Each structure stands twice: as structure tokens, then as C-alpha cells.
Simulated scan of single mutants.
Amino acid sequence: MSLFSNRGRRPRLAPELDDADLGKLLKRLTSNTRSSTPGTTDLCVAQIARFLEQNPGDFDLRAHRVSVLAGFLSESNLPAAWVQRDPSNASALVLHSWSAVERGRAAGRLTDASSVWERCQLVAELDPRDPTPWVVMLSVARLERYPTSDVFATWNEIVTRDRWHREAYLGMLEYLSPQESGSIAQVVDFVDSVRGRMPSNAPCAAVELAAHVMQYHAAVSRGGAQALLARNHWNTPQAADLLERARTTWPQRTFFSHAAALADLNLLAYALTAANRRRQAAPLFTAIGGSVTSWPWRFEGDPLAAFESAHHKAR
């Protein structure tokens, strides 16, 4: 990760964040898929395969790259074509499965959850160290409303392999929220259970702030007096202390090293703006450069417009 590398660029939605190699691959895939040249599918599959062979053992980077590719290719036949060509390739199987999950999220349910689950189990057998197939299975369990015991069993498989896996913690936070299968009390208990033992610069460091943003959004969404008073949430001692700690440490060049750090900086810039601490958000916008994430900015409408408005106010 190279914070500050995007300084001065025009803001754009950048799911790859500051992963320059991933950004280049997405551009190549876009260019190649627009072509009707024979062999295009083989070319694209070969490019994806070579790319995902890089950095073996870096499961944080792998999760980021597979998740971005899965979203990018969710309506494409490339993941399925890769599995047909190489049915025992772990990367092909997990990308195909994560792409199916992305389609399922858009539709509200999976068309064939059992097949996705079976493919992920095969990936887990091919590389028992890799938490990525279990991350996909956690999404399947949530989408299909599997029993809570199955959800937590899958969660345990992930954290056994990667103690502070970002995607896993954020996934469980959503699962435990009132919007999905839990309650505010369960969210608070979950955050409290990890706050004291989680390293301050862990890949999942933003889970506590994400919980506060979710509570803020819930208050605004209820409308009426609660929406008018929602900003007061950021004045509570716990939220104010969190913002103060995060704003002084997160933008430092060497503080974070995980692949999705820029997404966490987007979250913090949004929270500081919502808390009316706009000047304090200025260093965050410098660090973010032009790499905008859809969430949480989309809560305000068009995410790019919301980001640019907040950036202007910070200046």
C-alpha cells in the first residue's frame, strides 16, 4: 500500500484503491472484453490467473484483490470460463464463488448456494491455510440466513487462519446489526469484545468506527427528531475519543499496511465530516487523494458528489 500516491488526482470511484497493479488489470480486462477478437476469453483468463498467482501467502491482499475482481466480473462469464478450463484451480474456484455472491447480494439471494458452498469447501481443501474461501462461505451463510451456529462456526474458521481479517470482521458487524440478524446490543458487545485486544493498526481496525457510522445512519434514516439529533452521536465520549485517536494516527504514512487502508481513511473522512469536524478531515483527504469508496459516501446520495462536497468544506 502506498498512501499519498494518488495525491492531486481527480476524485473517482476506485474499488482497487491504491493497488496500481490491480487497477491496470481492470483496465486491460475492460479493453479486452470490448473486443470480439477470437481468444479474448483465454487472454483474459490468463491475465487474471497470472495476477492472482502473485504474492502467495499474503491473504489480506488476496482477499482485497479477489473481492474487487468478483465485483468487477459479477456479470461476466470469465470466472465460470476459468473454472471450466481449470476446475482444480483454487483461485478460479474462489473467484467464481465470490462473483456468485456479488450477484446474490444484488438479487437478495443466491441462485445455487449449495454449489457455491461446495466450491469453497474444495478451495479450503486445496489450501487449508487460506481464509478466503471461508470469507465467501460467511457471505453465503448470511445471504441464505443459515443458523447462527453455522455463521459463527464459519467465522471461527476465518479468524483461526487470519486473526484480524478485515472482511470477516466487517461481515460479522453487518450480520449482528439490526438491519440483518441482530441488534444494537449485539453490535456493541461484538465491538467491545475486540476493542481491547485488537492492535490499533490491524486490518480490521475500522470495525469500531464502522459500527458508529452504521448507528449514525440508522438514526438519520428514522427521520424526524432522531434524524435532526443524529449528529449528536459523534459527541458521545466513546465516539469523540475514537475520532480523536483515529484522526491523529490513521493518516500517518507508516501506520497502516493492509490492502484496504484507503477504504478506512474514506470512512474516517466521512465520519469527521458528519461530526462537523471538517478541518480535522483535511489530512484524510490529502491521504486519500482521488480514490473514493462507494460506502459510506453513497448514504448522502451520489458518492462522488458527497466526497467532493466534504473535501471542499474541509479546505
Rank of each mutant, 00 (worst) to 15 (best):
F51K: 00
S221M: 12
R161D: 04
A81N: 10
L61N: 03
G224P: 15
R65E: 02
A225S: 13
N89Y: 03
I158T: 03
E53T: 04
A168D: 06
P79Y: 03
L284I: 10
N32H: 13
R231C: 10
G23P: 03
L122S: 11
V159K: 11
R12M: 12
R119A: 13
A63S: 12
D58C: 02
P199G: 06
S99D: 05
S88T: 12
T41Y: 07
S36E: 10
G57M: 01
W234F: 11
A202N: 08
L13C: 02
P15F: 02
L73N: 02
S309C: 06
A261P: 05
A106H: 11
A219M: 15
V68A: 00
Q121H: 14
L73T: 07
R50K: 13
A282W: 05
R142E: 14
V220K: 15
S35W: 06
L17F: 02
T160K: 15
E16M: 05
L52I: 00
K24A: 09
A206I: 13
T160M: 14
L3I: 12
Q84G: 09
R109I: 06
L265M: 10
K313E: 15
T160L: 15
A275R: 06
M1Y: 09
L268N: 06
R10Y: 04
L3H: 06
L43K: 13
L43F: 10
A49S: 15
L93F: 07
W98C: 04
R34K: 14
W134K: 01
H312L: 12
Q47C: 03
S181H: 14
R62I: 00
W297N: 01
T286G: 10
T286D: 13
L22F: 03
S177P: 08
R247M: 12
E144P: 05
P178K: 07
P131Y: 03
T286C: 07
D58H: 04
M137R: 14
L267T: 05
R253Y: 10
A205K: 09
Q238Y: 02
N156H: 13
G289T: 01
H96A: 14
E208Q: 15
H217N: 14
E300Q: 11
V213K: 02
S149W: 03
V292H: 02
D150H: 10
L173W: 01
L17V: 00
R65F: 06
A219G: 02
T249P: 00
Y270K: 05
R12L: 10
A260E: 12
M1E: 06
A310H: 11
A219N: 09
T254Y: 14
L22I: 00
P87Q: 07
D189H: 12
H165I: 00
S97M: 04
R12I: 10
L228P: 02
L29F: 10
D42L: 08
A275V: 05
A168H: 09
L268S: 05
S181T: 08
T293G: 03
A239W: 00
S200Y: 00
P131W: 01
R103M: 06
L13I: 15
E102I: 01
M172H: 04
A185G: 09
H233C: 01
A230D: 10
